[in-house]
Design a protein around this nucleic acid. Structure first.
Lengths: 312, 312
DNA sequence: TCAAAAGTGTTATCCTTACACCCATGT
DNA sequence: ACATGGGTGTAAGGATAACACTTTTGA
């Protein structure tokens, strides 16, 4: 960067660089969060940023809808990674990658299609429904402890304990990226290992380049958003039961939710309205059907303040 | 974007594009939020993305510290704008701009220096300390009403009312970008007007290109962050009084805060500790001096869940 | 009849908000 | 004395979390 004080024209950008777009497309089918992949699960869909894209978002949206046949409900930019941020290729060529998060509504046809894969295949330690996975206590914690002992012990172990909720600290489902980074730093993850170093390859399915890191960023973002923003509904069919909604939230958060309180939370916020019908094939008592109250999408802007304001 | 199923090598990115970095640098000096500008206040500091930057963040950090002589406390990526997202130049050349937010500690030397300017010069409608600015009722609301009447009246007026807290809706200080976009869409802002169209140029100082839009993004981000993340401290001198801290938060949020409750909020969260000294030149009773509890920076990861979890 | 899921009620607890009030210093 | 800012107490209200319990279906 150079400071420019006298001329108003911008200094010309030095070397042109290669730019591509990478998408984290998420859908939930009967309680399983899925992510769209290509290359037989080895990569996220991506491609060069081309002139014909009138805007990044529009380009992505069109592309996804052509490829999958499903409407893309919600799109937001995730992050822009530069080569050395990505810790890979030092092959001289500059490259940056702009990543997007997209949410799709559940459709019966979505599952068998091309590349939809459960995201917990890539992050098995992230699914805490039914309790923390044994993987953490059996493999991750010991490996991280060993790594911590090999340098700056205190700081390293402290980070590990916070990220993975060790030593009685609670599990924080939003720290997806921090956990991945930590495992990467400790060389416990395939992507971090030169050629085929020893063990620990059981820590999730790897992806090419930094795609798993991008996926981690996406998961973290959805998990955060779902709590203060009614984005869940972008993942639901137009009509649903409370339990279906709950299962969807649980799938995303990787946590079990308390049923009675969940219902009240949703109803009290007036996020849904009854359709009047009921659904009988639930395995128990028939459930009332709900739909999302469209008005909410705008109103919700009026959300939380969290500061102790003066007067009124 | 093209789908690639058979080869594992990435398709080469088509046309290389020009990439540059733009920074929103923020500091607060005695109750005034400042932003670093160049070109006599017409632009945010920016420059080409160059090879020598080992990473985007590191590059930015080094550059800022050389230019300003102050340490850059906190850096985060804001957004990546593409040309047509930016609604400007259709001159054939692709260009994208990666923007960053940086927070600097208040220093006595910071104000007179090169390009620090009050950010409310650019967004006069955003400062609600001491009540909503008259500008909104006198100019903005009428103009927006006129604009709404010229097409899709209901939807337009609804958006306007939400964004600016009209018709008894509360003011939401986080909607900085939405408000700017709205004024832009309604052509009430200099940047949106071809050549010199008629009136309404009083709506804040303009900037070149989409820099004011980037600044709006930055302000929105700080305002959101300040409420669930102890970033305020990145803006404070190492030792401060409670009122100074409060004034800083008020400056950023553009809102008045309730003093007794603010103190309790801070203390109860154990964000600060007493230094033991007291400050006498406050104009009233001497105030106790505080410093930020460093440990918090890590612990804070343990933040909010907001979902009704099952068991424990 | 029992399992599975749908729902309702109620309480303890915590956090937020608002109001009222006293303390210490300089002019 | 009084203005200015520093600082404490407390009670009402709402949101959350935890527990116990009833209802309705299908196998």
């Amino acid at each position: 960067m150079t400071q420019q004080k006298t001329t108003k024209a911008k200094a010309p950008s030095a070397q042109p660089v290669a730019v591509d777009l990478t998408a984290v497309l998420v859908a939930v089918a009967d309680g399983r969060p899925l992510v769209m992949t290509i290359e037989d699960g080895w990569a996220l869909p991506s491609g060069p940023f081309a002139v014909e894209h009138r805007s990044l978002q529009a380009g992505l949206r069109g592309w996804v809808e052509r490829q999958t046949g499903h409407p893309l409900g919600y799109v937001e930019q995730l992050y822009t990674f530069a080569d050395s941020d990505r810790r890979q290729g030092v092959e001289g060529a500059q490259a940056i990658s702009i990543s997007y998060l997209g949410l799709l509504q559940a459709q019966p046809s979505i599952v068998p299609l091309t590349g939809w894969r459960p995201w917990y295949d890539y992050f098995p330690w992230e699914d805490h429904r039914g309790g923390a996975p044994q993987l953490i206590a059996k493999t991750i914690a010991p490996e991280l402890r060993r790594w911590a002992k090999s340098g700056e012990t205190g700081a390293r172990w402290n980070r590990a304990a916070i990220a993975f909720g060790l030593e009685g600290r609670g599990w924080n489902e939003e720290l997806v990226l921090q956990r991945y980074e930590l495992l990467y730093e400790a060389q416990l993850i395939a992507e971090a290992q030169q050629a085929s170093r020893k063990g620990a390859a059981e820590l999730g399915r790897p992806m090419i380049g930094d795609h798993r890191r991008i996926l981690a960023t996406g998961i973290a973002r959805v998990r955060a958003k779902i709590k203060y923003n009614p984005v869940v509904f972008e993942l639901m069919a137009p009509v649903f039961t409370m339990l279906q909604l709950q299962r969807c939230v649980e799938a995303i958060a990787g946590l079990d939710v308390h049923k009675p309180n969940f219902r009240r939370l949703i109803e009290q916020q007036q996020l849904v309205e009854e359709t009047g019908e009921s659904v009988t094939d639930t395995g128990g008592r028939p459930a009332r059907a709900f739909r999302f109250r469209a008005a909410v999408r705008e109103e919700r802007a009026a959300a939380g303040t969290k500061l102790p304001l003066a007067r009124s």
